[in-house]
Design a binder for these strands. Structure first.
Lengths: 185, 185
DNA sequence: GTCTATAGAGTGATAGAC
DNA sequence: GTCTATCACTCTATAGAC
């Protein structure tokens, strides 16, 4: 018996792609074992809680990734303009110009939202708050910054819907450009 | 046997709520029979093609509803400003201030997009085109009208995601107000 | 009898859990 | 792999309108 060492952390990104592609209900064990190249036994060894625990781990992973790579750009840069630009660059890369959808957004729209309400809420709250803080740093009024921040994050989610609907990456890229200008201008 | 006469058209709105709530994959026959109060026999009598035919009928129904009640507002009013205002009013009502999600948006994000690609694309294209035409009528340049129209329709989709994520209708209403102002201003 | 709407038992396949 | 539950779907049987 070959023992290809896998760890929980190595499985989570693969799991994330399955949940992202098929949603929570559509992520069947068959699709999960295919996507992770693991047997059912291994999957349940890593996630005794079943699909619910898998989805929790995936949401935590996405949340951590965004905190580290996207939200932190906003506060880490000495120049907040640079931080905002870095955020848009990262977002464009992460969503592969709209070819990839937002897993948390998909969960927010679905029936599974209630099950993962806290995770979904916290993800968007963290993003919006980090962006709003950067907007205040470039001189916006707090209230204006909050509204603009909602507009940008919501606009990105909407752009993902339209990019998928039209199957066109330029729809996503152009919206990203427009939102970037509005945030910085 | 009680014979409560139902017609296909009466069933479609009930079906729509099931697909809207659970998505295509999550709309099991158990949920469908529960939501429509019809037995499997009746359901398959109306939709011999099964779930695929049900989803097609639902998408066609939503599409027709929007064409009649939303997109037509944009062209029917003598004053395009009034038409755009009417569109925003209808959208706010239809989505129940963000408590309801967009069935076509959910389909666009999911794996089922490919199966219903034409319907999904046409729905958003019709909406964006109708709005862009109204924006041209109030004096916008065609190119600017197209960009703004994408922004508004995408913004509405994104606002639905955020409203569900935060479980707050005011997030949706405020975004709708902001987009309305931008469209008209 | 014919036609349409109804109900639901029963099919094999597949689901998630272990 | 094995378990039970549930999946989408089929089929037979029924009722009532013509």
């Amino acid at each position: 018996m070959a023992r290809i060492v896998a760890e929980r952390e190595d499985v989570v990104p693969l799991l994330a792609e399955v949940f992202r592609t098929y949603g929570f209900e559509g992520a069947s064990l068959a699709r999960i074992t295919e996507g992770t190249k693991l047997g059912k036994g291994s999957i349940y060894h890593f996630f005794p809680g079943g699909k619910e625990e898998m989805a929790e781990a995936v949401l935590a992973h996405v949340d951590a990734w965004f905190k580290r790579n996207v939200f932190e750009s906003l506060s880490a840069h000495a120049d907040p303009h640079e931080g905002i630009n870095a955020m848009f660059d990262e977002v464009g890369r992460y969503f592969r110009s709209g070819r990839r959808v937002c897993l948390v957004g998909v969960f927010a729209l679905g029936n599974e939202r209630d099950r993962f309400a806290a995770r979904v809420r916290d993800y968007f709250a963290a993003w919006i708050d980090a962006l709003a803080a950067a907007l205040v740093r470039i001189g916006r009024e707090p209230k204006e910054a909050a509204a603009l921040s909602h507009e940008v994050v919501g606009g990105i989610q909407g752009a993902l819907v339209l990019a998928r609907a039209f199957d066109r990456t330029d729809v996503f890229e152009e919206t990203l450009q427009r939102l970037r200008k509005r945030a910085l201008g």
